[in-house]
Design a protein around this nucleic acid. Sequence first.
DNA 1: GAGTGTGAAAACATTCACAGCT
DNA 2: AGCTGTGAATGTTTTCACACTC
Lengths: 214, 214
Amino acid sequence: MKENKKIPPATVKRLPLYLQCLDQLNKDAIGVSSKTLADLAKVNDAQVRRDLSYLGTLGTRGVGYDIQTLRNQIQLELGLVEGWSAVIVGVGNLGSALAHYGGFRDKGFGIVGLFDSDNKKINNQVAGLVVKPLSSLEEYCKKYNVAIGIIATPSRFAQDVADHLISCGVRSILNFAPVLLKNSPEVQIRSVDLSQELQILSYYLDRPVLKAVE
Amino acid sequence: MKENKKIPPATVKRLPLYLQCLDQLNKDAIGVSSKTLADLAKVNDAQVRRDLSYLGTLGTRGVGYDIQTLRNQIQLELGLVEGWSAVIVGVGNLGSALAHYGGFRDKGFGIVGLFDSDNKKINNQVAGLVVKPLSSLEEYCKKYNVAIGIIATPSRFAQDVADHLISCGVRSILNFAPVLLKNSPEVQIRSVDLSQELQILSYYLDRPVLKAVE
DNA sequence: GAGTGTGAAAACATTCACAGCT
DNA sequence: AGCTGTGAATGTTTTCACACTC
C-alpha cells in the first residue's frame, strides 16, 4: 500500500515548496499541470514530473494532476498527517515570532509548549500558551510525546538546550541559534542560520544575472 | 589579481559554514587542517579541500591552512568586505529579532533602517534604530545606497513591499514571509520559509537513521 | 492536442586515492 | 610524516525528448 522507495533529498526539499504553490493556486481550480506548478516554483517542468513520480503515479496523461490528491500525497509522504508535537525553547523575539507563526499549525505541527530560563518571562502568555521553566520540559515531552524541539535561544545556551531536549527523548531539532551543534546519528538536527542566508545573497550581489542557489 | 573563476553554487552555500567553523576554533590557533574543518562542518575532508581550492591556493602542503588567510579569502569571495547596507521591513517579532541579531553586523552587513506600515510602531526604537514609515523608504535607500531588503512582514504585504523595494533600487531581497514572490531576473530573491524547514525535518522523522539533507 | 511518466544524456557534486610539496 | 591539491571514478540531480494515455 505504501510506496517504499526512498525519495532523493533534493526532491524532499522541494516538496514543501510544491505544497506552498498549491496553496497559492486559484481556490476553485481542480487540476494543475506540471508546467503551471513549475512556473510557480521556478523550476523545470520535467523536474516537477520527476519529483512527483517518486510519490506514485498521481497524474493523468493529457490532463494533469488533481490538486487535492497531490496535496494529500505530499502531506502523507512528508509525514505531515501524523500531527507531530513540538516545543519552542527560548521566548525572545524570535521564539515569539515562531510561536505566533501560523504556518506551523497549518502544516500539521502542534506547538504544545514554550520554555525559557528567564524568570521574568515565565508565566507570560505568548500566542495562547503560558511560558514554562526549563525544569518542566521533561514532563511536557513525556505528556505530549514531543517529537520536535525548536531552539530559539541565544547561541551560548543552544548546546545545553539541545542536550536537554535529547535527554527528554526528543529526536528531531530545528536550531535557529547560529552555532554548530554536536550531533549524534540518532538525532536529526537542522540548523537555520539567518545570517548565512544573507552571506549567500551577498555572493550573488555585485555580479550580473546569475542563477541563484535555491 | 582577482580570481575570476565561478564558484559552484554548492560551494557558495558551504562558505558561510566554514566561516562559522573558523569562529568556533580555539582563539589562539593559527592553522587548521581540512580534516579538522571537515569534522566541524560535518562534511568530507576532500570536500573542504576542493571547496577551498576554488578560492585559490590557500593551503600549505604538509601543514594546513592559515586561519586568518582563510577567513579573509572567504569573506572577500562572498563579498562581505564591501559593507553592504540593508533595511528591514516589518517590525513585528521576527523583524525585531532580525534587528537585534548581532550576526548581521558581525558579518559585515549594516542595518540602516527599520520600516513598518503600522502607525503604532513608527518612532519606536528597536535595536538602536527608530522605526520609520514606508513613505521614507526611498529616501533611505538613496541616502545609504541600500543593497539588500529584508522582508519580515505578514505574507499579504510581502509582494507589495518587494515591489516597493525594487522600485527604490534594491536589487537583492531576503524574504521571510511564507509566500512566493514574483521575481524578475535582475533581482536576487532568497526566501527563508521557517515552516518548510520543519516539513523537511518531518520527512526524516519516523524513519531510522537517514542522512539528512544539508 | 495536451500533458504525464520515464529512459537516456548531460550537468553537477562528491569522494577516492595519490603525487607532490614542506 | 603530514597534509594539500587535483585527476579520475563514482554518485546524484537535472534536463531532454518522446512514447504513451486521455
